[in-house]
């Protein structure tokens, strides 16, 4: 492999998109409002498109003749590098919007910085994905504000979702030792910078939404190292079903 650090970095981004896109796809046909069913499917489509680009690039770096499908469908659970946040179940509409908002608020500044990457391919993927992600963040921010500052019930649901998901947020900024070499080379930004921007966004939106950031700061991590929650196995069982049951066929 040419550059293992770069491979892992692109792979973890691809896995974040893949797993979150898969989760959102579960809503299709069951959305709480027809208009939002369409909106969530759109975000899912964007994420799956991003996963395809990122995993194709990872496969290219890996140089083993794989493509995005080989990476998406044919790894074991502990080889997926997505953060725990994105594999959490959909729950209700507040849980899904909160998960998406916390992620979008991280992805947007990350893509912004990556458009200036010294790696041309990463910069190109970031350029396209940034446009999509800006819209996702706008949409989810609008909803977090409405749920938080809507009715008592919606406020409680949104606060509960925040309380549940907050402990997965620190992992978004997990930086491996090898990733530091990519920072040095100007390929990726330091996560400390992204975290500052993320914090500004979430604090502003939560203030407007009258939601309170939990004071319990115990944080989970593990996804980036391949150590996942129980939820990922079921998600992969569905995702991989056809490829595992009918190996080596074209679809």
């Amino acid at each position: 492999m040419k550059n293992e650090a770069l491979y892992n970095y692109v792979l973890h981004m691809g896995d974040d998109s893949l797993v979150l896109g898969q989760r959102l796809g579960e809503w299709c046909g069951h959305g709480p409002i027809l208009e939002e069913d369409i909106a969530m499917t759109n975000i899912s489509l964007d994420l799956i498109g991003q996963a395809m680009s990122l995993l194709d690039y990872a496969a290219e770096i890996e140089r083993q003749g794989k493509d995005h499908d080989a990476l998406a469908y044919l790894r074991f659970e502990n080889q997926y590098r997505n953060v725990l946040l994105v594999e959490q179940p959909n729950g209700d509409f507040a849980d899904t919007m909160m998960r998406q908002f916390l992620f979008d608020a991280f992805r947007k500044p990350l893509y912004e910085k990556l458009t200036a990457s010294s790696d041309a391919q990463i910069a190109a993927i970031a350029e396209k994905s940034l446009k999509e992600t800006r819209y996702h963040l706008k949409h989810t921010s609008e909803w977090i504000i409405r749920l938080g500052d809507g009715t008592d019930e919606s406020h409680d649901r949104a606060q509960k979702a925040l309380d549940n998901l907050w402990r997965y947020t620190n992992e978004l900024f997990y930086e491996t030792e090898e990733a530091k070499s990519l920072v040095m080379a100007g390929i990726v930004p330091p996560m400390s910078e992204i975290k500052i921007l993320w914090k500004q966004t979430v604090e502003a939106v939560f203030t407007e939404a009258t939601l309170v950031i939990p004071t319990n700061n115990w944080q989970f991590e593990g996804g980036r190292r391949g150590v996942h929650s129980e939820h990922l196995g079921y998600l992969l069982a569905e995702l991989q079903y056809m490829q595992r049951a009918y190996p080596n066929m074209k679809w």
Partner: peptide, 30 residues
Amino acid sequence: GMLPEGNWITRAPNLRRKAVLLAKVQDEAG
């Protein structure tokens, strides 16, 4: 009509088919 097809979105055999099916079922909502 979204339901019978929607139930295969998470199991589509590759990412291209998954995206196509999502876009198709989404059209039906439209």
